[in-house]
Structure formats: C-alpha cells, structure tokens
C-alpha cells in the first residue's frame, strides 16, 4: 500500500494537467526504509512526447545524488498517461528499474474513471496496490 499526503498527490496531478497533452513525470523522495514520500520533485520529460517520458539525464543525476546525500530513495516515481487509463504499458514495465519504488500513474484522459493508480513493478511483473491518501502528514518526527 502507498500512503501519500494529499498535498503531494495534488502537486503531481496539477503538474500532469499543466503538461497535458504531453506526458509529465517526476519523483517523490522519502527517507530510506520509511516507504513514505516526503517531497515532490517534478522532472523534465526529456522525450517531450504525448506517449513517452524519460527523465532528463543530467537532472536525474543531480536529483539522485541529492537523494543519496540525504539518505533518501525514490519512494514514488510518477508519470501521466494523457489519452489512456492509468495502467502500466509495455514500456512502463520494461523500464521499471527500482524494485522498491511505488510507480504512480496519473491519467489526464477525459472521462478516465480511476485517474490515480499505484503499482509495484519488478521483473516484468505488475502488482497493483491500494492507495491511502492522508490529509495531514502524520509521520513520526
């Protein structure tokens, strides 16, 4: 299960809507081992595409180093699907390379019934997980 604050989710959804019809992408780091995202980092979609995303490599290097220095990990990696459901595509499965990450997919397609869904993806296997949205960040200090 992914537990995420409404503020983080809203930030990602707004990002996705602003980028529409291009795919938006980003990462939510959290302290290693806590499994709770604590901040939101929108990333440049290097592909600039309606059907593909790729983190801009130099930006990714900078953000990954930053996470490393702060004992964080990419708890959530998100991207949007702008004309289809929030379900992993073949490319999403092939490229998933963080076994501990929650892969969040946001659909900005009109009429999408479930626009926010979360998955674990590893070794070609997709497991959908439940999503709990919390209004107040109740993490222990």
């Amino acid at each position: 299960m992914l537990i995420i604050s409404r503020a983080l989710l809203d930030a990602a959804m707004t990002h996705a809507q602003q980028q529409h019809p291009l795919e938006a992408c980003g990462v939510m780091p959290g302290r290693q081992g806590t499994d709770r995202p604590s901040r939101w980092v929108p990333m440049v979609n290097h592909a600039g595409s309606q059907t593909f995303f790729q983190f801009e490599p130099r930006e990714q290097l900078r953000v990954w180093r930053e996470m490393d220095a702060q004992q964080e990990e990419p708890v959530v990696i998100y991207h949007s699907h702008t004309a289809s459901d929030a379900y992993p595509s073949r490319a999403d499965i092939d490229f998933a390379n963080e076994p501990h990450t929650h892969y969040l997919i946001l659909s900005t397609a009109s009429g999408c019934e479930y626009p926010v869904r979360s998955y674990r993806i590893a070794n070609g296997q997709v497991i959908e997980e439940s999503l709990r949205i919390v209004d107040v960040d109740t993490r222990a200090a």
Partner: peptide
C-alpha cells in the same frame, strides 16, 4: 563512475 539507468516509460 556513476551508473544510472534511465527512468522512462509512457503510454505507447
């Protein structure tokens, strides 16, 4: 030397 697999995917 830093190895960093691309983070990528998308609807296609």
């Amino acid at each position: 030397l830093t190895i960093l697999p691309a983070v990528a995917g998308g609807a296609r």
